[in-house]
C-alpha cells in the first residue's frame, strides 16, 4: 500500500441492474418508488428508474475497502449526488466506475479524492474520504 501523494488506486468497475436496485431496496429499507417504478420516476421528472444515490455511494465504499483492505481504516467518506444513474430495464443494466488518488497525508491520515462516473459522465461530486494509513 502506497500512501504517497499522487498515488492512484486501481480503478474499480461495477455493473448495476434493476434487480440490484430491488435487492438494495430490501436490504436498506429505502423503498422510494423512483428506484423501481418507471411510472413514478417519470411522474417526478426523471428519465426513468434511477439508482439510489446510496447504492452508488455503497460502490464507493466497496472501492475504498478494496483499496485499503480494512473498513475500520476509513474514518470518513461522502459525496454529493449530482447526476442520476439511470438504470435501463434490460439484462445488462449500466456501469459505475470508481477511481481514486491520494491527495494528502498528514498525522497518519490520508486524504483520498475519488471520481465516480456512469457511462463516462461524472455522477458524484466532492467525493472524498479520509483513511488512517
Amino acid at each position: 500500500m502506497s500512501w504517497d501523494v499522487g498515488h492512484e488506486f486501481e480503478p474499480q468497475s461495477y455493473a448495476v441492474t434493476r434487480a440490484d436496485l430491488i435487492r438494495y431496496a430490501g436490504a436498506s429499507g429505502d423503498f422510494n418508488p423512483i428506484h423501481w417504478s418507471d411510472r413514478v420516476a417519470t411522474s417526478v421528472g426523471l428519465p426513468g428508474v434511477v439508482a439510489h444515490g446510496m447504492y452508488t455511494l455503497a460502490l464507493v465504499g466497496q472501492a475504498l475497502v478494496a483499496w485499503v483492505g480494512d473498513p475500520a481504516r476509513v474514518e470518513s467518506f461522502g459525496a454529493r449526488f449530482t447526476k442520476p444513474v439511470v438504470v435501463p430495464d434490460d439484462d445488462e443494466g449500466t456501469w459505475v466506475d470508481v477511481s481514486g488518488r491520494v491527495t494528502g497525508v498528514e498525522d497518519g491520515l490520508a486524504s483520498v479524492e475519488l471520481t465516480v462516473t456512469n457511462a463516462g459522465t461524472k455522477v458524484l461530486g466532492m467525493t472524498k474520504a479520509t483513511v488512517r494509513c
Partner: peptide, 30 residues
C-alpha cells in the same frame, strides 16, 4: 442482514461476515 446488504452492493465481507459494509449505517439513518 449484513450479508443481504453486502450481496446487494457487491461488497466484500470481513471478519466472517460480522463486519458490515461502510454504508450500512444508512439503514438506521434512513
Amino acid at each position: 442482514k449484513i450479508r443481504e446488504f453486502a450481496e446487494a452492493t457487491r461488497s466484500a465481507l470481513f471478519g466472517d461476515g460480522d463486519v458490515a459494509p461502510l454504508t450500512f449505517p444508512i439503514v438506521v439513518a434512513f
